[in-house]
Design a protein around this nucleic acid. Structure first.
Length: 116
DNA sequence: ATTCTGACAGCAA
DNA sequence: TTTGCTGCCAGAA
């Protein structure tokens, strides 16, 4: 009955996209937070991998709102121009200093808490 | 099928 | 304190 092998529309990647799109404007989250929300707290690397394919999605994925747990813009190199990610965040009212989100703790948006 | 990689995170020295 | 290694998991070659 259960389509065990059937690949459901909600893949890990799709799940990551959905959560990422839920990140409010002017807020940021971490790969680990998303990974934990998905149920695999230590698969943070997969989140980044998924976001790597986010450009493949027809929807706009605010991947620039996803940084590592240090608030560091680790994925900025994947936005074409390395400064694009920081500029996007600054455009949303965030402050980027030394490729790092200032007041990261303040701007941090945890899907575990916000989406419960 | 096997091997390698990857936008991280946690822990050890 | 910083630096480095390991674990994690899924997709790509």
């Amino acid at each position: 009955m259960s389509r065990s092998k059937q690949k459901e529309p909600n893949d890990f990647f799709t799940n990551v996209y959905e959560v990422t799109k839920l990140i409010p404007y002017g807020r940021v989250t971490s790969y680990g937070a998303i990974a934990r929300y998905l149920g695999s707290g230590r698969s943070a690397r997969m989140v980044g991998w998924a976001l790597n394919s986010s450009h493949s999605s027809r929807e706009f994925i605010p991947a620039h709102r996803v940084v590592n747990r240090n608030g560091l813009l680790t994925g900025r190199h994947h936005f074409g121009n390395s400064t694009l990610m920081g500029q996007l965040l600054e455009n949303e009212g965030l402050i980027i200093e030394d490729d790092q989100v200032v007041n990261f703790n303040e701007k941090f948006w945890d899907p575990l808490s916000e989406l419960s």
